[in-house]
Design a protein around this nucleic acid. Sequence first.
DNA 1: CGTGAAATAAAAGAGCC
DNA 2: GGCTCTTTTATTTCACG
Lengths: 161, 161
Amino acid sequence: MPKTELDAVDRRILAALQADGRLSNVDLADRVGLSPSPCLRRVRRLEAAGLIGGYRALLGREAVGLGLTVFVGVKIGSHADQAAAEFEAAVVAMPEVIACHMVAGEADYLLEVAAPDLAAYQRFLLDRLLALAIVREVKSDIAIQALKQGAPLPLGHLDAG
Amino acid sequence: MPKTELDAVDRRILAALQADGRLSNVDLADRVGLSPSPCLRRVRRLEAAGLIGGYRALLGREAVGLGLTVFVGVKIGSHADQAAAEFEAAVVAMPEVIACHMVAGEADYLLEVAAPDLAAYQRFLLDRLLALAIVREVKSDIAIQALKQGAPLPLGHLDAG
DNA sequence: CGTGAAATAAAAGAGCC
DNA sequence: GGCTCTTTTATTTCACG
C-alpha cells in the first residue's frame, strides 16, 4: 500500500522522530498524545511503509575532520545506457560522495563531496573522479560556509491530507 | 577539548551509530568489541565533544510526498554585511530549504530545496525566494534521479589518527 | 580504563474495550 | 484503533580488577 493515509498523529510522530531519532517510545507516545502501544504500532507501520527509512546518528562534519564540502557538476561524454550506468555505479561507490543526483540543467550530474581539506579534495578529483574516462567536464563549487545542512524535511504539505 | 584523540574503537562507534542510530548500547558494545559500560561512556563523550551532533529518523522523500529535489544557485545584488545577513536569515528560515551553502564559484549561494512537485516549487521560487529583493539571479537544477542521498560521512581519513 | 553484576526503566506482545 | 497488564530486554549505577 504505497498511499497510506496519514493522520495528524502520524505527522506528529514523523516530526518528533525527525527531530530526535532516539526518543523512547513512551516519551514519543505522550508527546503525540497516545499511549505507548498504539504509538509503537504506528511507528512500525510508518517504518514498514517506508515513510521512516531508518535512523542515523548525525556527525559534526568539522568535528570528525571533514571541514570541506564541495559541490561538483559533472558532464559526461556519452549518455549511452551502459556507459552512464558504469559512471553512476563508480560514483555511488565512492565514500567521499555524500550525494549524487542526475540533474536537468547545465551539468549532467551534481555531486556533494565531503573531504578533510583541499589537498584531499584534489586527490579525489584527480585520482578518482577524473580517472573515469567518461567524465568530460567538471565544475567544482567549494562551500565556504554551511548555513544549513541536512535539515529536517518539511511536512507542512501533509497538513491538508 | 576540540581535538579529542580518537582510537579505533571510537571510530567503529561512530560508523556503527551512523549506520543505525537506534542501536542499543549492548548491541553497539559487542559490535565494537567492548562491554556495555565503557561503550556507553565513550558514546557520551563523543556526544559531548560534538562528534555526534544528534540522532534523527530518516524519512523517505517520495514516501512523504517530497518527490522533487531542486538545487538552486543564487546570486545576490549586494554583498554588504547586513543585506547578506538578512538574505541568509530569510533562506535558513524557509523549511523547504534543506541545505544552504555559501559557495565560491559562479553563484553566491547554493540551496537544496525539497518540494512535492513542480507547482509547489514554482510557488516557492516566485512567492518566497524571488520575493527577496536582494536576489539578483537564480538558476534551478532539477534533480531527475537521486542516485545517492544523505549518505553516511566517510571516516577513512581517521584511520591513521 | 576495563569488566561484571544488580536495580531501575523501557520495549514488545499478550488480551480486552 | 486504542488502553492496560505482563514478560522480556536494555539502560544505568556501583563495586571490583
